[in-house]
Amino acid sequence: MSLLLEVRGLHAGYGKIKVLSGVSLTVGEREVLAVVGPNGSGKSTLLKAIFGLCTVYSGSVLFKGVDITGLPPHKRSLMGLGYLPQVGNTFEGLTVRENLLLALHDGSKLEEGIGKVAELMPELGGLLDRRVRTLSGGERQMVALAMVLLRNPSLVMFDEPTAALAPRVARRVIERIAALRDELGVSVILVEQNARAALEASDRALLLVSGQPRFFGGSSELLGERDLVKTYLGL
């Protein structure tokens, strides 16, 4: 299995505030990686560092074998790296159609893109001319996901996509995200609070504690580490 993403000894944070120290991980093709850990462990920061939205002090990020550590976010996005932040992931004052237009690299293919979205998420078809602000929380997340998928990513990173959802819905959403691998052939990094659901749906797992990696390996193996799971994930 070839490597899609490789993170080596990453130290990152915001300006003077260091958050991550010495994080390494790999994601292969068609693989789902769950990133779990207590609050404030730097899970979201890890995604931002991979996408180029925070300060990297040392270490490197390789995507498709290319060192992208110094690349601006939009170039990473063009290379096929998709990132779905927890909040602020759509333009709320714009219509769904306008959001999709911006997500496409080439605006002329809007109709084609909309066709593809309608196929994947039929619910969005009827909402194209609504402003995102007027949609429900679930519908907004759908728009955000559509925007990421329209860019034909090879790897999609989700930052707590279930943060505002009820637990039962959350499990469904997580399973739905994991299913993207089979439907579209993409890899996924999933940062999640719902550790059990995330671990059950993923292939591999990274446990982050206070910015440091405590475990990296198969998800089922992590579930087997009773002490770690109990101490840090409360399972």
Partner: peptide
């Protein structure tokens, strides 16, 4: 105007 960071990440 609404979200410069997201716009930038979309290549604007």
């Amino acid at each position: 105007i609404e979200n410069p960071q997201l716009a930038e990440s979309l290549g604007i």
